[in-house]
Design a protein around this nucleic acid. Sequence first.
DNA 1: ACGCCCTTTATGTCTAGACATAATCGACAG
DNA 2: CTGTCGATTATGTCTAGACATAAAGGGCGT
Lengths: 231, 231
Amino acid sequence: MTLEQRIRSDIEERIHSGEWPPGTRIPFEHELVERYGCARATVSKALESLARAGLIERRRKAGSFVAHPQVHSAVLDVPDLPQLIASRGEIYRWDRGVRRMALPSDLADETGIGRPALLIEGTHHSGASAFGIETRLIALDAVPDAAKESFLMTPPGTWLLSHTPWTQARHRIRAVAATGSVARRLGVVSGTACLELQRWTWRSGVPVTHVTQLFPGDRYDIVAEFKPGAQ
Amino acid sequence: MTLEQRIRSDIEERIHSGEWPPGTRIPFEHELVERYGCARATVSKALESLARAGLIERRRKAGSFVAHPQVHSAVLDVPDLPQLIASRGEIYRWDRGVRRMALPSDLADETGIGRPALLIEGTHHSGASAFGIETRLIALDAVPDAAKESFLMTPPGTWLLSHTPWTQARHRIRAVAATGSVARRLGVVSGTACLELQRWTWRSGVPVTHVTQLFPGDRYDIVAEFKPGAQ
DNA sequence: ACGCCCTTTATGTCTAGACATAATCGACAG
DNA sequence: CTGTCGATTATGTCTAGACATAAAGGGCGT
């Protein structure tokens, strides 16, 4: 491991652990030069790399600061549904289903969370009709505060967005036909083509939440933009 | 504009213009040092930045080479279907449909290409069954060589991946039901839930191709991974 | 109190080297 | 003809400086 990488990961570690929360001024370059006993160019390269990754923000004369949460550069976005529906000019409503239960570790394991979790089911409404349904697991070790929430008024996705950052996400998108109770909850005829979106999110490698959302094909689509090498 | 940025954009320009096609060895660092009359560190930073963006590949002793396009750092990937199907252990077959025609600018405009284009339709097969169908427009000003291709043996996506790089892509994903001739071509019953993937790609802001692909829900799903700041 | 200028200072860019490392390619032995 | 070894060479990482630049903050006059 090179010295530059060591400096970088040292700082990254302190940011991710919460030791240096957003807004903290990290040591000046000349202080890091002293700490690691190296040239300023080496420290500077490490900081530049952190700045490119969006973890810190550098300001002349002022120093370098831990960046405020995610302004993640929009690839496959994690949308806030209430906001999204409001921006379309519709009234949003969240309807938590009957199931809100704590799961033992072994059951949660089936979806890859692999730890004690909270299970929440509910429906997102746009105006008078159902917009989508979701089944969500929240890892209680990563987000202990979730245990105190009922999620009756606020959908869990919205609550999570403002209570915990994520550093990694995987999406899986499929087309499935809605049948039986699922079709009934969505208010569509059995066999309707739906978009199934599964999302896993992690914070520093630790699972945070897993959600499966189902949207009738005519009510939702995903747009993803990608520009490689944008500096 | 800094010297580093000038060196970077000079090289970028030659790659995008096609003057240095994929595989070309770009001048050695010491040659660039001579050309720009600067220190090696400056040239090296410019090349490092190009390598990070995936435009070039650097190899010790050998030099730096223009990267082959399809190594995009995977967010919403542009997959090569033949390769993807082969990796699943199935036999791939491409079946170009009857339509391969040049479109006047005004017709192409309807899909947002906005320029003379080539229209190609065809079916991707995996083993004995249809895997997906696609309808594609290729902008002839961006890819003039496409006019000479029949696309009978090679699907246009594969051909494009090895003939032209892209710098920007937009994806749109929906769930739709396959009906009529579409269902017949896919070999599914009418009403089957399908994933519709539309993709627009650009090279330096100029449209390259637009494709609409339709996959039966049980034969394809999209996985997108996102790690901010991954080097 | 307020606006203006000027000093200070941390980052931004760059130079001219050094040594490390890994891959290529030719020479040479089998 | 084939495989191994060593010299060569381009990139990788780093040092110890230099000067440029932008912005914070203090001092000054109004």
